[in-house]
């Protein structure tokens, strides 16, 4: 019957139009989200710096008796885990030049080591050697921060 056919045709056309709209929407969203490799590395490194700074702040606070041991241990643990996660993320980003990737991962590995040491020291209640590790953290943190600042000044 002519009326029913028209309705089916209309709903069919509507379906196609809707799917097309969705496709365009998704494509544009995907386009907007694609960051340049430099941006992506920059973003991940900011997270790395964040955890380095967190660990340093906790380490310094612990030295001055401003936080509890249990909390410090768990925070160093969380830092270690998240640093590992960042390393994996950077590793998987094939569009970042291999050299930069390797450099970043090396820095993260060093941080992971320091944070790991801090965690064992706290768990072993060995606060004496803390200051040395905290100093090392500071060094790594500063170098990361300056490389980030250098990156952002590049075109």
């Amino acid at each position: 019957m002519p009326v029913m056919l028209n309705e089916t045709e209309r709903s069919c056309a509507k379906n196609i139009r809707l799917r097309l709209l969705l496709l365009i929407l998704l494509a544009s969203l995907a386009a907007c989200s694609s960051q340049s490799p430099a941006d992506k590395l920059h973003k991940e490194l900011r997270t790395v710096v964040s955890w380095a700074a967190t660990s340093r702040m906790v380490g310094e606070a612990l030295q001055n008796g401003k936080v509890l041991q249990g909390y410090a241990a768990r925070t160093f643990e969380a830092a270690g885990r998240n640093l590992q996660e960042e390393s994996r993320t950077i590793d998987k980003s094939a569009d970042i030049p291999a050299e930069e990737r390797a450099g970043a991962q090396a820095q993260i590995a060093r941080l992971e080591q320091i944070v790991g040491q801090l965690k064992s020291m706290v768990e072993g209640k060995d606060n004496a050697a803390l200051s040395q590790q905290v100093e090392q953290l500071k060094v790594e943190e500063q170098s990361l921060k300056s490389s980030l600042r250098g990156d952002s000044s590049q075109p």
């Binding site: 967190t54 606070a61 401003k66 936080v67 909390y71």
Partner: peptide
């Protein structure tokens, strides 16, 4: 100023240490 992004709950208690030290925690 420290470059800490608040992405994990363990970063939260640090908030009051500058102002109140141990009691801030």
């Amino acid at each position: 100023p420290r470059g800490i992004q608040v992405e994990h709950y363990s970063q939260l208690p640090l908030m009051l240490i500058d102002a109140f030290g141990y009691w801030g925690f």
